[in-house]
Amino acid sequence: MIVFVRFNSSHGFPVEVDSDTSIFQLKEVVAKRQGVPADQLRVIFAGKELRNDWTVQNCDLDQQSIVHIVQRPWRKGQEMNATGGDDPRNAAGGCEREPQSLTRVDLSSSVLPGDSVGLAVILHTDSRKDSPPAGSPAGRSIYNSFYVYCKGPCQRVQPGKLRVQCSTCRQATLTLTQGPSCWDDVLIPNRMSGECQSPHCPGTSAEFFFKCGAHPTSDKETSVALHLIATNSRNITCITCTDVRSPVLVFQCNSRHVICLDCFHLYCVTRLNDRQFVHDPQLGYSLPCVAGCPNSLIKELHHFRILGEEQYNRYQQYGAEECVLQMGGVLCPRPGCGAGLLPEPDQRKVTCEGGNGLGCGFAFCRECKEAYHEGECSAVFEASGTTTQAYRVDERAAEQARWEAASKETIKKTTKPCPRCHVPVEKNGGCMHMKCPQPQCRLEWCWNCGCEWNRVCMGDHWFDV
């Protein structure tokens, strides 16, 4: 396979590697080409510095992935760790964990309700045991953590790749202090920090972006993250068709209702045909949960890209028209025109101005929308079919299609509260000796007794199943 190397943020060049090629071997190839010592090179990928003893497969490097290699003399205490030698983080029983690669970060837990604080980093599902597709590297999971809308060759929703760059020099040479644990960490600028490894760059702020994971991409090709779309790892039924499908869209209502993408497309087109989208002054033209839940309008309007190009163009047109109407304007009634106009409040005669090729020149009556006339309008008909009709959803289907309910059931079956801080902690095999993952707590306690870890627990039921 081919990976592209950008040395000291210059133009990239291809390097041929195998899945079992080590990072140090990659350094040696680059060092020979650039005429520099291999031990002064640092390989940066997806916000993480890659260790010498890791392989291309370990690092989730795919065909035509772009890695950054910078030349920086080692500072005291760094060289041993980078070589894969006596790194205290690798000691058996050590409590410190390697910062998780962005290629394996899962933010789907952050669609849980606000009262489930902490689960994004504490609760991990076991539903990723799908067998890898044919042709994928051994052991590589097909679980997708992110979804994007690819405006490039795909023109559809695709699995996405999370990447990070330095907000100062805009190069992907920043190593994160810690990985993101929720969508806010990724979507809110300057929320996460790190250290830029580019020479002479003092940058410390992280800037995240997404790429389409279905095809090789260049540095400049980015895609918009659709953070309401998630892999259906909890096997929730769709609120409309009641099938279990994946991926799904999880509405931001209190129940976190789930809808499959085909039904979401149908829901949007139906509402669009009836012009029953909601115009929100802050958000724009949007839709609420299909069950009509309060405070559930979709905030990231790129989710409506699921409509496809033709329907999305209609959505944008109707949204612009609705904006004009909300501002007190009118639409030209001549067939084939429909231009938005903003006449004076007491102006009865409205002319669709033909300047700049935008208007048709038609003069019409503001009251009856017919060709302009003197005197009273002959008839004014009330528009028919403008009443909002509820999208029919079966109550039982709505009850079963809740992301929140599956989460709470998982928590109930696989977790116990920490005796000190009461945060839910998952036990997935292993011994009875637990350690609270909350940095402010870190209590060592017994899963069996529910009390602080002691010699009695150690001698009596340390390794009970």
Rank of each mutant, 00 (worst) to 15 (best):
K408T: 11
G94W: 11
R156W: 07
Q440Y: 15
A363I: 15
T177Q: 13
K48D: 02
R128S: 11
D274T: 04
T177I: 10
P343F: 06
I239Q: 02
C95L: 15
C457Q: 00
E452H: 15
W74N: 13
Y312N: 04
P153M: 09
L174G: 00
K412V: 11
E444L: 04
N58M: 15
C253R: 00
G135H: 12
V258I: 05
Y147R: 02
L187E: 05
C201H: 00
W445I: 03
V258D: 02
V248Q: 02
S108R: 10
L107C: 15
T177E: 14
C95F: 14
I229C: 07
E98Y: 08
P180R: 01
S198G: 08
Q64F: 14
P419G: 03
D262S: 04
T242L: 14
P424N: 13
S233R: 10
C150D: 00
Q100R: 11
A92P: 12
G308H: 05
P281Y: 06
V425W: 05
L301C: 07
V148L: 04
C253W: 01
P159W: 05
R42V: 13
A406F: 11
I2N: 15
P288A: 08
C154V: 00
C368K: 03
K220D: 13
Y143T: 08
C337W: 02
S286G: 00
E404C: 08
T173W: 05
G179K: 06
M80C: 10
L331E: 03
W403G: 03
S255R: 08
N235V: 04
C446V: 01
R271N: 12
R271C: 10
V423K: 15
C238E: 01
V278E: 10
P73D: 11
T175A: 14
L187A: 05
F24L: 13
R366I: 10
T168L: 12
K211G: 11
V117M: 12
L249W: 02
L226Y: 02
L283V: 13
A134F: 10
G459Y: 15
E195Q: 12
L358P: 14
Q440L: 11
C451P: 15
A363M: 14
E452C: 15
K427C: 06
C377D: 02
P247D: 02
F146Y: 12
D60Q: 15
F264K: 01
G284N: 05
V148Q: 02
E207H: 06
H303R: 00
S65Y: 03
I298Y: 01
R396Y: 12
Q78H: 11
C431M: 06
K161S: 09
I259Y: 01
R140F: 10
S233L: 07
Y143I: 08
Q326W: 05
S223G: 07
D18G: 09
S246T: 09
S167T: 12
K416D: 06
I23H: 01
C154L: 01
S223Q: 07
Q440R: 09
I2S: 13
K151Y: 12
V5E: 03
P333H: 03
P417G: 10
G354A: 09
I239D: 00
E444M: 06
H124C: 08
T173H: 09
N58L: 06
G160K: 00
K76I: 15
S384M: 10
F7N: 03
A134P: 11
I259T: 04
T270I: 09
M434K: 07
R234G: 06
G361E: 05
P113C: 11
D130A: 13
C238S: 00
D460T: 15
F277M: 08
R75Q: 14
Q389G: 14
E376Q: 14
L283T: 09
V30G: 00
C365E: 03
C154W: 00
G430D: 12
S145V: 06
G340Q: 08
L249Y: 03
C253S: 00
D130M: 10
G160W: 00
N313Q: 13
T386S: 13
D184F: 04
L297N: 06
Q347G: 09
V224E: 14
T410I: 08
H227C: 13
W403C: 03
D39F: 03
R191M: 10
G284I: 01
N190W: 07
F209D: 10
V224A: 13
Q71F: 04
S246C: 05
L287A: 03
S167P: 03
I122C: 13
P417E: 14
V269H: 03
Q64K: 14
C332L: 02
G84S: 11
A172L: 07
Y267A: 03
E322R: 04
R170L: 08
F277C: 02
Q63A: 12
C436I: 02
R271G: 06
G203Q: 03
S101N: 12
N52I: 00
C368H: 02
G203F: 01
P199K: 09
Y391S: 06
L228R: 06
A398W: 10
S167L: 06
F7V: 03
D130Q: 11
D62I: 09
P247W: 03
Y149W: 13
I69E: 00
I229N: 00
S145E: 03
C436S: 00
R392F: 10
A291Q: 06
V258G: 01
W453H: 00
C212M: 00
Q317V: 07
R128G: 14
R75P: 13
K32C: 11
Q326E: 13
Q389P: 15
V121Y: 12
G429W: 06
R314F: 02
Q158T: 14
N58S: 13
E310H: 06
G340E: 04
W183S: 01
V67L: 10
A320K: 11
G160L: 00
R51D: 10
F4S: 07
I298Q: 00
S65G: 06
T222Y: 09
H124A: 14
G284S: 04
I122A: 15
F4I: 07
R72Y: 14
S407K: 12
E374P: 08
V324I: 13
M192H: 04
R275L: 02
P281T: 10
G375S: 08
Q311M: 05
N448A: 08
E98A: 10
Q252T: 12
G35H: 06
K299R: 11
T173G: 08
V164E: 04
L187F: 06
D274S: 04
S246I: 00
F304R: 01
A406E: 12
S65P: 10
C368L: 02
Q178Y: 08
T125W: 05
F381V: 07
G361Y: 11
Q347F: 07
A230P: 02
D115I: 05
K161G: 04
Q197D: 13
E309D: 15
I69T: 01
E322W: 03
V244P: 04
P294F: 06
S131E: 14
T125D: 14
A91G: 12
H124W: 04
S218D: 14
P439V: 15
Q326K: 14
L266H: 06
M80H: 12
D274F: 04
A31C: 03
V157D: 02
V164H: 09
I229D: 00
Q347T: 09
N232C: 00
E49I: 04
P202E: 13
L162M: 10
S101A: 11
E426Y: 08
Y147N: 02
P439H: 07
R42I: 11
Y312K: 01
I142K: 12
E374Y: 06
G152W: 14
A406P: 13
R334Y: 06
R51V: 05
V290Q: 03
S145Q: 09
A320G: 10
G203H: 02
S255H: 08
N232A: 00
Y285N: 03
Q400C: 14
G357A: 12
N313G: 08
C182G: 10
C332I: 02
A134E: 12
C365Y: 02
C446Q: 01
P133V: 11
C446T: 00
C150G: 01
G340K: 07
H433W: 04
P113T: 13
V290S: 05
R156G: 14
V380K: 10
R97S: 12
F210S: 00
C289E: 00
T217G: 10
K299W: 05
G47S: 02
K299H: 07
V350D: 03
G114K: 14
R275V: 00
F264G: 00
F364C: 03
P439I: 07
I44K: 01
S19G: 13
K413C: 13
R234I: 04
Y147A: 02
G375T: 07
A398L: 13
R42E: 06
L307S: 05
Q438K: 08
N90R: 11
L26I: 08
G118H: 08
L341H: 11
S108T: 10
K211R: 09
N254V: 10
S198C: 05
V425S: 14
P439R: 08
P333T: 03
G47D: 04
N254I: 09
E444W: 05
F264D: 01
